[in-house]
């Protein structure tokens, strides 16, 4: 049985970037990896494929029913790249798209055929409906990871994800493997995320700093692992990969009520703002030469 994990988090928080780097790092470590993008944007695996997108599962099946030979495309270091696909913005039902794509891959033995050591689902948004919860149901992923920054809305999304995990946990659904803190610029941000996990019976598996190397590599259409393998950032992703592959933790998180979450957050946000003000003031003081 392959290890199957699903990565969730607020829109634009860095799920696909983190996932692709994680896949690339795992592949470098010698594991056979399959990355499945569950997002109609079809952009999960682009940095594994030199910036080029691949035909999606749903499009392929739509155009030629019964053709199941063209759903998996090789990317960096032989990583199996799959994009579920889905409707154009503003039409159809993306949630149903995810259900249909995962069922198609799963029921037809396509995943078994490639028998990867690890399968990573990169899932858009939070678990807004039954479709987006598909990967965490019994029999698909066994661990969920969530990417967050120290922004309130990002943590809010994590808290919602925890509610989804809780819901499905009664029925054999996936449990939490850990929280990935992303785009970290200060230790206070780390402290805030850490405090959140402590209060919700979860844990941080890795902090990933905000880094211009990531941006530069993305512009070149590659992951940091491929584009800047010797950088400090690449080492962070490799460390994450080693931790994920060995991680057996399964947390049953205890999410905040929405009101309590807001109360908890306001204290931290004030501190972060103050911290930023001090930073800016310092710069101004230094610049003024006093």
């Amino acid at each position: 049985m392959p290890k199957q994990i699903a990565i969730y988090g607020k829109g634009g928080i860095g799920k696909s970037t983190t996932t692709s780097n994680l896949s690339a790092a795992l592949s470098d470590l010698g594991y056979s990896v399959m990355q499945i993008g569950c997002d109609p944007k079809n952009d999960s695996t682009t940095t594994l494929r030199k910036g080029k997108s691949i035909p999606t599962v749903l499009d392929t099946v739509r155009q030629r029913s019964g053709d199941l030979d063209n759903l998996v495309h090789e990317g960096y270091n032989g990583i199996y790249c799959v994009e579920a696909g889905g409707p154009e913005p503003g039409v159809g039902c993306a949630g149903r798209g995810i259900i249909a794509a995962i069922e198609l891959l799963d029921n037809n033995g396509i995943i078994d055929e490639y028998s990867p050591d690890i399968i990573i689902y990169d899932v858009l948004g939070d678990v807004v409906c039954g479709g987006f919860a598909m990967p965490i149901r019994k029999g698909i992923a066994d661990q969920v990871y969530t990417v967050t920054s120290s922004d309130y809305m990002a943590i809010y999304a994590v808290n919602n994800l925890f509610k989804g995990i809780l819901k499905y946990s009664n029925n054999g659904g996936a449990l939490l493997g850990g929280v990935i803190g992303n785009s970290i610029k200060s230790s206070l941000q780390e402290d805030m995320i850490k405090d959140f996990t402590e209060r919700t019976n979860s844990d941080v598996i890795q902090f990933v700093p905000r880094s211009p190397t990531v941006t530069r590599c993305e512009l070149d259409g590659v992951t940091t692992i491929e584009g800047a393998p010797d950088s400090r950032q690449a080492e962070v992703y490799r460390e994450l990969a080693r931790k994920v592959i060995n991680n057996k933790d399964k947390y049953l998180p205890t999410p905040f009520d929405n009101d309590d979450l807001a109360d908890w957050a306001s204290g931290w946000i004030n501190q972060l703002l103050l911290n930023r003000k001090v930073e800016i003031d310092n710069i101004q003081e230094e610049a003024s030469g006093i």
């Binding site: 949630g95 149903r96 409906c129 039954g130 919860a133 019994k138």
Partner: peptide, 11 residues
């Protein structure tokens, strides 16, 4: 369409 977790309820 709404992705009801039927097996979950059955279990």
């Amino acid at each position: 369409i709404i992705g009801e977790d039927i097996e979950g309820t059955v279990d």
